[in-house]
Design a protein around this nucleic acid. Structure first.
Ligand SMILES: [Zn+2]
Ligand SMILES: [Zn+2]
Ligand SMILES: [Zn+2]
Ligand SMILES: [Zn+2]
Lengths: 168, 168
DNA sequence: CCTTGATATGTTATTCCATAACCCCTAACA
DNA sequence: TGTTAGGGGTTATGGAATAACATATCAAGG
Protein backbone atom coordinates (compact mmCIF):
# COMPACT_ATOMS: atom_id res chain seq x y z
CA UNK A 1 0.00 0.00 0.00
CA UNK A 2 2.62 2.51 0.96
CA UNK A 3 5.38 3.22 -1.49
CA UNK A 4 7.35 5.57 0.73
CA UNK A 5 9.56 5.16 3.75
CA UNK A 6 7.81 5.36 7.10
CA UNK A 7 7.34 8.71 8.74
CA UNK A 8 6.18 9.81 12.11
CA UNK A 9 2.39 9.88 12.01
CA UNK A 10 1.98 13.18 13.77
CA UNK A 11 3.40 15.47 11.17
CA UNK A 12 1.74 18.35 9.43
CA UNK A 13 3.40 20.88 7.23
CA UNK A 14 6.65 19.19 8.18
CA UNK A 15 6.17 20.03 11.88
CA UNK A 16 4.84 17.91 14.72
CA UNK A 17 1.62 18.92 16.40
CA UNK A 18 -1.28 17.73 18.53
CA UNK A 19 -2.67 15.29 16.06
CA UNK A 20 -5.87 14.25 17.79
CA UNK A 21 -6.93 17.84 18.28
CA UNK A 22 -5.99 18.50 14.68
CA UNK A 23 -8.29 15.75 13.40
CA UNK A 24 -11.20 16.59 15.67
CA UNK A 25 -10.92 20.27 15.01
CA UNK A 26 -10.89 19.88 11.26
CA UNK A 27 -13.76 17.43 11.23
CA UNK A 28 -15.75 19.80 13.42
CA UNK A 29 -14.99 22.71 11.14
CA UNK A 30 -16.07 20.72 8.10
CA UNK A 31 -19.23 19.54 9.82
CA UNK A 32 -20.06 23.12 10.67
CA UNK A 33 -19.59 24.30 7.13
CA UNK A 34 -21.73 21.45 5.83
CA UNK A 35 -24.50 22.33 8.26
CA UNK A 36 -24.30 25.98 7.27
CA UNK A 37 -24.44 25.24 3.56
CA UNK A 38 -26.90 22.39 3.58
CA UNK A 39 -24.36 19.75 2.60
CA UNK A 40 -24.68 16.20 3.86
CA UNK A 41 -21.61 14.96 5.69
CA UNK A 42 -22.69 11.32 5.63
CA UNK A 43 -20.89 8.54 7.53
CA UNK A 44 -18.85 7.42 4.53
CA UNK A 45 -17.85 10.97 3.63
CA UNK A 46 -16.95 11.80 7.19
CA UNK A 47 -14.94 8.60 7.57
CA UNK A 48 -12.99 9.23 4.37
CA UNK A 49 -12.12 12.68 5.63
CA UNK A 50 -11.00 11.21 8.97
CA UNK A 51 -8.86 8.60 7.22
CA UNK A 52 -7.09 11.28 5.22
CA UNK A 53 -6.65 13.51 8.25
CA UNK A 54 -5.32 10.64 10.35
CA UNK A 55 -2.52 9.96 7.86
CA UNK A 56 -1.65 13.55 7.01
CA UNK A 57 -0.37 12.44 3.66
CA UNK A 58 -1.61 11.59 0.21
CA UNK A 59 -3.61 8.37 -0.09
CA UNK A 60 -4.83 6.66 -3.23
CA UNK A 61 -8.54 6.00 -3.63
CA UNK A 62 -7.91 2.28 -3.36
CA UNK A 63 -5.91 2.73 -0.16
CA UNK A 64 -8.88 4.53 1.32
CA UNK A 65 -11.21 1.88 0.00
CA UNK A 66 -9.16 -0.79 1.77
CA UNK A 67 -9.84 0.92 5.08
CA UNK A 68 -13.53 1.36 4.32
CA UNK A 69 -13.79 -2.30 3.42
CA UNK A 70 -12.19 -3.40 6.71
CA UNK A 71 -14.74 -1.31 8.53
CA UNK A 72 -17.71 -2.52 6.51
CA UNK A 73 -18.42 0.93 5.12
CA UNK A 74 -18.08 0.02 1.47
CA UNK A 75 -16.25 -2.35 -0.78
CA UNK A 76 -16.39 -1.11 -4.36
CA UNK A 77 -14.43 1.72 -6.02
CA UNK A 78 -17.41 4.02 -6.63
CA UNK A 79 -18.00 4.24 -2.88
CA UNK A 80 -14.58 5.77 -2.33
CA UNK A 81 -14.65 7.88 -5.47
CA UNK A 82 -18.05 9.34 -4.72
CA UNK A 83 -17.01 10.37 -1.24
CA UNK A 84 -13.80 11.86 -2.63
CA UNK A 85 -15.75 13.69 -5.32
CA UNK A 86 -17.93 15.31 -2.69
CA UNK A 87 -15.00 16.25 -0.47
CA UNK A 88 -12.91 17.68 -3.28
CA UNK A 89 -15.82 19.50 -4.87
CA UNK A 90 -16.36 21.45 -1.70
CA UNK A 91 -12.67 22.01 -0.95
CA UNK A 92 -12.37 19.73 2.08
CA UNK A 93 -9.90 17.46 0.28
CA UNK A 94 -7.42 18.17 -2.48
CA UNK A 95 -6.44 15.86 -5.29
CA UNK A 96 -2.71 15.49 -5.93
CA UNK A 97 -2.43 14.94 -9.69
CA UNK A 98 1.19 13.88 -9.63
CA UNK A 99 0.46 11.03 -7.24
CA UNK A 100 -3.02 9.96 -8.32
CA UNK A 101 -3.90 10.52 -4.70
CA UNK A 102 -5.82 12.70 -2.27
CA UNK A 103 -4.96 14.71 0.84
CA UNK A 104 -7.16 16.43 3.40
CA UNK A 105 -7.14 20.20 3.28
CA UNK A 106 -5.39 21.74 6.26
CA UNK A 107 -7.58 24.85 6.40
CA UNK A 108 -11.00 23.98 5.02
CA UNK A 109 -12.39 27.45 5.41
CA UNK A 110 -13.47 27.95 1.84
CA UNK A 111 -13.21 26.28 -1.55
CA UNK A 112 -9.77 26.97 -2.98
CA UNK A 113 -6.89 25.80 -5.13
CA UNK A 114 -3.73 24.85 -3.29
CA UNK A 115 -0.05 24.31 -3.90
CA UNK A 116 1.69 21.22 -2.56
CA UNK A 117 5.19 20.43 -1.41
CA UNK A 118 5.69 16.69 -1.78
CA UNK A 119 8.70 15.03 -0.19
CA UNK A 120 10.15 12.33 -2.42
CA UNK A 121 12.05 10.96 0.57
CA UNK A 122 9.22 10.18 2.98
CA UNK A 123 5.99 10.96 1.14
CA UNK A 124 4.96 13.79 3.44
CA UNK A 125 2.74 16.42 1.85
CA UNK A 126 2.40 20.04 2.92
CA UNK A 127 -0.16 22.47 1.61
CA UNK A 128 0.96 25.95 0.67
CA UNK A 129 -0.81 29.04 -0.61
CA UNK A 130 -1.14 29.12 -4.36
CA UNK A 131 -1.81 32.82 -4.76
CA UNK A 132 1.75 34.10 -5.22
CA UNK A 133 2.39 31.58 -7.96
CA UNK A 134 -1.00 32.24 -9.50
CA UNK A 135 -0.22 35.91 -9.65
CA UNK A 136 3.09 35.18 -11.33
CA UNK A 137 1.58 32.93 -13.98
CA UNK A 138 -1.33 35.28 -14.50
CA UNK A 139 1.05 37.82 -15.97
CA UNK A 140 1.98 35.43 -18.76
CA UNK A 141 -1.58 34.22 -19.17
CA UNK A 142 -3.03 37.68 -19.47
CA UNK A 143 -0.50 38.56 -22.13
CA UNK A 144 -1.66 35.52 -24.10
CA UNK A 145 -5.33 36.37 -23.60
CA UNK A 146 -5.83 33.26 -21.47
CA UNK A 147 -8.18 33.27 -18.47
CA UNK A 148 -7.10 31.00 -15.61
CA UNK A 149 -9.91 29.16 -13.84
CA UNK A 150 -8.12 26.51 -11.81
CA UNK A 151 -4.47 25.76 -11.08
CA UNK A 152 -2.49 22.63 -10.26
CA UNK A 153 0.81 23.42 -8.54
CA UNK A 154 2.80 20.54 -7.14
CA UNK A 155 6.46 20.72 -6.20
CA UNK A 156 8.50 17.61 -5.52
CA UNK A 157 11.60 17.80 -3.39
CA UNK A 158 12.96 17.09 0.06
CA UNK A 159 11.43 18.03 3.39
CA UNK A 160 13.69 19.36 6.17
CA UNK A 161 13.80 16.00 7.92
CA UNK A 162 14.83 14.09 4.82
CA UNK A 163 17.35 16.76 3.91
CA UNK A 164 18.90 16.32 7.33
CA UNK A 165 18.90 12.55 6.88
CA UNK A 166 20.82 12.97 3.63
CA UNK A 167 18.23 11.38 1.34
CA UNK A 168 17.95 12.17 -2.29
CA UNK B 1 -10.06 9.58 -29.09
CA UNK B 2 -10.54 13.28 -28.68
CA UNK B 3 -12.58 14.55 -25.82
CA UNK B 4 -12.44 18.21 -26.78
CA UNK B 5 -14.12 20.27 -29.42
CA UNK B 6 -12.21 20.61 -32.69
CA UNK B 7 -9.70 23.39 -33.09
CA UNK B 8 -7.76 24.76 -35.97
CA UNK B 9 -4.74 22.52 -36.41
CA UNK B 10 -2.18 25.26 -36.91
CA UNK B 11 -2.24 26.83 -33.51
CA UNK B 12 0.59 27.26 -31.07
CA UNK B 13 0.55 29.30 -27.93
CA UNK B 14 -2.95 30.34 -29.00
CA UNK B 15 -1.66 32.01 -32.15
CA UNK B 16 -1.52 30.73 -35.68
CA UNK B 17 1.85 30.20 -37.32
CA UNK B 18 3.68 28.41 -40.10
CA UNK B 19 3.02 24.95 -38.87
CA UNK B 20 5.12 22.92 -41.27
CA UNK B 21 8.19 25.03 -40.59
CA UNK B 22 7.43 24.72 -36.89
CA UNK B 23 7.43 20.93 -37.03
CA UNK B 24 10.48 20.64 -39.24
CA UNK B 25 12.44 23.15 -37.25
CA UNK B 26 11.72 21.52 -33.93
CA UNK B 27 12.52 18.04 -35.20
CA UNK B 28 15.77 19.35 -36.65
CA UNK B 29 16.67 21.00 -33.37
CA UNK B 30 15.96 17.82 -31.45
CA UNK B 31 17.95 15.74 -33.93
CA UNK B 32 20.85 18.10 -33.53
CA UNK B 33 20.79 17.88 -29.77
CA UNK B 34 20.60 14.09 -29.93
CA UNK B 35 23.60 13.95 -32.24
CA UNK B 36 25.52 16.28 -29.97
CA UNK B 37 24.76 14.28 -26.84
CA UNK B 38 24.99 10.79 -28.28
CA UNK B 39 21.26 10.10 -27.96
CA UNK B 40 19.51 7.84 -30.46
CA UNK B 41 16.56 9.52 -32.17
CA UNK B 42 15.20 6.27 -33.58
CA UNK B 43 12.33 6.12 -36.10
CA UNK B 44 9.71 5.40 -33.46
CA UNK B 45 10.96 8.17 -31.18
CA UNK B 46 11.13 10.65 -34.02
CA UNK B 47 7.67 9.72 -35.24
CA UNK B 48 6.15 10.14 -31.78
CA UNK B 49 7.70 13.58 -31.57
CA UNK B 50 6.28 14.46 -34.97
CA UNK B 51 2.84 13.23 -34.02
CA UNK B 52 2.83 15.43 -30.94
CA UNK B 53 4.16 18.43 -32.85
CA UNK B 54 1.59 17.99 -35.62
CA UNK B 55 -1.28 18.26 -33.15
CA UNK B 56 0.06 21.02 -30.89
CA UNK B 57 -2.01 19.72 -28.08
CA UNK B 58 -1.87 17.07 -25.39
CA UNK B 59 -2.27 13.48 -26.57
CA UNK B 60 -2.68 10.37 -24.46
CA UNK B 61 -0.22 7.53 -24.90
CA UNK B 62 -2.94 5.39 -26.42
CA UNK B 63 -3.88 8.10 -28.89
CA UNK B 64 -0.29 8.15 -30.06
CA UNK B 65 -0.22 4.39 -30.16
CA UNK B 66 -3.26 4.41 -32.44
CA UNK B 67 -1.31 6.46 -34.97
CA UNK B 68 1.77 4.27 -34.68
CA UNK B 69 -0.36 1.21 -35.22
CA UNK B 70 -1.92 2.63 -38.39
CA UNK B 71 1.56 3.27 -39.70
CA UNK B 72 2.92 -0.14 -38.76
CA UNK B 73 5.43 1.34 -36.34
CA UNK B 74 4.22 -0.47 -33.25
CA UNK B 75 1.08 -1.89 -31.81
CA UNK B 76 1.55 -2.46 -28.10
CA UNK B 77 1.53 0.09 -25.25
CA UNK B 78 5.21 -0.34 -24.28
CA UNK B 79 6.25 0.90 -27.71
CA UNK B 80 4.57 4.24 -27.14
CA UNK B 81 5.53 4.49 -23.49
CA UNK B 82 9.19 3.75 -24.16
CA UNK B 83 9.39 6.45 -26.80
CA UNK B 84 7.60 8.89 -24.51
CA UNK B 85 9.92 8.01 -21.64
CA UNK B 86 12.91 8.84 -23.80
CA UNK B 87 11.42 12.08 -25.06
CA UNK B 88 10.32 13.30 -21.66
CA UNK B 89 13.53 12.25 -19.94
CA UNK B 90 15.51 14.51 -22.25
CA UNK B 91 13.03 17.39 -22.20
CA UNK B 92 11.73 17.09 -25.77
CA UNK B 93 8.22 16.31 -24.58
CA UNK B 94 6.36 17.27 -21.41
CA UNK B 95 3.91 15.18 -19.52
CA UNK B 96 0.65 16.91 -18.51
CA UNK B 97 -0.29 15.34 -15.20
CA UNK B 98 -3.77 16.75 -15.10
CA UNK B 99 -4.67 15.12 -18.41
CA UNK B 100 -2.65 11.91 -18.29
CA UNK B 101 -1.25 13.11 -21.58
CA UNK B 102 1.83 14.42 -23.34
CA UNK B 103 2.71 17.52 -25.35
CA UNK B 104 5.78 18.36 -27.42
CA UNK B 105 8.04 21.01 -25.97
CA UNK B 106 7.92 24.25 -27.91
CA UNK B 107 11.56 25.21 -27.21
CA UNK B 108 13.53 22.03 -26.73
CA UNK B 109 16.77 23.80 -26.01
CA UNK B 110 17.49 22.22 -22.68
CA UNK B 111 15.88 19.96 -20.12
CA UNK B 112 13.41 22.00 -18.10
CA UNK B 113 10.19 22.13 -16.16
CA UNK B 114 7.35 24.01 -17.79
CA UNK B 115 4.05 25.64 -16.96
CA UNK B 116 0.98 24.92 -19.09
CA UNK B 117 -2.13 26.84 -20.00
CA UNK B 118 -4.80 24.31 -20.91
CA UNK B 119 -8.00 25.45 -22.58
CA UNK B 120 -11.03 23.55 -21.29
CA UNK B 121 -12.99 24.75 -24.31
CA UNK B 122 -10.93 23.38 -27.15
CA UNK B 123 -8.09 21.38 -25.59
CA UNK B 124 -5.33 23.66 -26.85
CA UNK B 125 -2.19 23.67 -24.72
CA UNK B 126 0.37 26.45 -24.49
CA UNK B 127 3.69 26.21 -22.72
CA UNK B 128 4.77 29.04 -20.47
CA UNK B 129 7.87 29.73 -18.42
CA UNK B 130 7.71 28.25 -14.95
CA UNK B 131 10.41 30.36 -13.34
CA UNK B 132 8.28 33.25 -12.04
CA UNK B 133 5.93 30.86 -10.31
CA UNK B 134 8.81 28.75 -9.07
CA UNK B 135 10.36 31.80 -7.51
CA UNK B 136 7.07 32.65 -5.82
CA UNK B 137 6.60 29.18 -4.36
CA UNK B 138 10.25 28.96 -3.37
CA UNK B 139 9.66 31.70 -0.83
CA UNK B 140 7.16 29.55 1.02
CA UNK B 141 9.21 26.40 0.56
CA UNK B 142 12.38 27.92 1.91
CA UNK B 143 10.54 29.12 4.97
CA UNK B 144 9.40 25.55 5.59
CA UNK B 145 12.88 24.13 4.99
CA UNK B 146 11.72 22.36 1.85
CA UNK B 147 13.97 22.04 -1.20
CA UNK B 148 12.15 22.06 -4.54
CA UNK B 149 13.52 19.71 -7.17
CA UNK B 150 10.78 19.58 -9.80
CA UNK B 151 7.55 21.47 -10.33
CA UNK B 152 4.24 20.71 -11.99
CA UNK B 153 2.27 23.82 -12.90
CA UNK B 154 -0.86 23.41 -14.97
CA UNK B 155 -3.54 26.06 -15.30
CA UNK B 156 -6.93 25.29 -16.77
CA UNK B 157 -9.04 27.99 -18.27
CA UNK B 158 -10.17 29.55 -21.53
CA UNK B 159 -8.01 30.53 -24.47
CA UNK B 160 -8.69 33.82 -26.29
CA UNK B 161 -10.55 32.09 -29.10
CA UNK B 162 -12.87 30.19 -26.78
CA UNK B 163 -13.40 33.28 -24.66
CA UNK B 164 -14.50 35.10 -27.80
CA UNK B 165 -16.77 32.20 -28.69
CA UNK B 166 -18.42 32.48 -25.30
CA UNK B 167 -17.61 29.00 -24.07
CA UNK B 168 -17.34 28.08 -20.44
C1' DC C 1 -51.49 7.58 3.42
C1' DC C 2 -49.36 7.63 -0.93
C1' DT C 3 -46.71 9.55 -4.55
C1' DT C 4 -43.05 11.91 -6.34
C1' DG C 5 -38.44 13.85 -6.65
C1' DA C 6 -33.92 14.39 -4.93
C1' DT C 7 -29.95 12.52 -2.97
C1' DA C 8 -27.02 8.83 -1.43
C1' DT C 9 -25.52 4.16 -1.67
C1' DG C 10 -24.75 -0.83 -3.45
C1' DT C 11 -23.00 -3.55 -7.23
C1' DT C 12 -21.33 -5.22 -11.71
C1' DA C 13 -18.69 -4.53 -15.44
C1' DT C 14 -15.80 -1.97 -18.22
C1' DT C 15 -12.59 1.47 -19.80
C1' DC C 16 -8.44 3.96 -19.54
C1' DC C 17 -3.61 4.45 -18.09
C1' DA C 18 0.86 2.26 -17.16
C1' DT C 19 4.35 -1.27 -16.39
C1' DA C 20 6.55 -6.08 -15.59
C1' DA C 21 8.79 -9.61 -17.79
C1' DC C 22 10.49 -12.14 -21.42
C1' DC C 23 12.65 -12.83 -26.06
C1' DC C 24 15.02 -11.33 -30.09
C1' DC C 25 17.80 -8.24 -32.88
C1' DT C 26 21.63 -5.24 -33.90
C1' DA C 27 25.56 -2.21 -33.15
C1' DA C 28 29.75 -1.45 -30.72
C1' DC C 29 33.75 -3.33 -29.34
C1' DA C 30 37.28 -6.32 -26.65
C1' DT D 1 34.10 -14.02 -32.26
C1' DG D 2 32.13 -13.62 -28.10
C1' DT D 3 30.14 -10.24 -25.23
C1' DT D 4 27.42 -6.42 -23.78
C1' DA D 5 24.10 -2.67 -24.04
C1' DG D 6 20.28 -0.53 -25.96
C1' DG D 7 16.14 -0.75 -28.60
C1' DG D 8 12.08 -2.90 -29.87
C1' DG D 9 8.06 -6.86 -30.21
C1' DT D 10 4.76 -9.24 -27.42
C1' DT D 11 2.05 -11.15 -23.66
C1' DA D 12 0.14 -10.45 -19.57
C1' DT D 13 -0.98 -7.92 -15.63
C1' DG D 14 -1.60 -4.16 -12.36
C1' DG D 15 -3.67 0.24 -10.96
C1' DA D 16 -6.90 4.24 -11.50
C1' DA D 17 -11.43 5.83 -12.71
C1' DT D 18 -16.08 5.66 -14.43
C1' DA D 19 -20.52 3.93 -16.82
C1' DA D 20 -24.66 1.99 -15.94
C1' DC D 21 -28.17 0.17 -13.33
C1' DA D 22 -30.50 -1.20 -8.92
C1' DT D 23 -31.75 0.00 -4.24
C1' DA D 24 -32.57 2.83 -0.16
C1' DT D 25 -33.86 6.96 2.27
C1' DC D 26 -36.21 11.04 3.24
C1' DA D 27 -38.79 15.32 2.60
C1' DA D 28 -42.53 17.75 0.40
C1' DG D 29 -47.06 17.77 -1.52
C1' DG D 30 -51.53 15.85 -2.74
ZN1 LIG E 1 -6.60 23.46 1.23
ZN1 LIG F 1 10.72 13.78 3.77
ZN1 LIG G 1 9.32 22.91 -22.92
ZN1 LIG H 1 -9.90 27.14 -26.43
Amino acid sequence: MDKHAPQTPDMIGFETHDHRACINGTVAAVAERCAAEGLQLTPVRKRVLEILLARHRALGAYDILDVLREEGLGSQPPVAYRALDFLTKHGFVHRIEGLNAFAACTHPGEDHDAAFLICTGCGAVAEAPVEPARAALSQTARAAGFTIARMVLEAQGLCPKCTADGRT
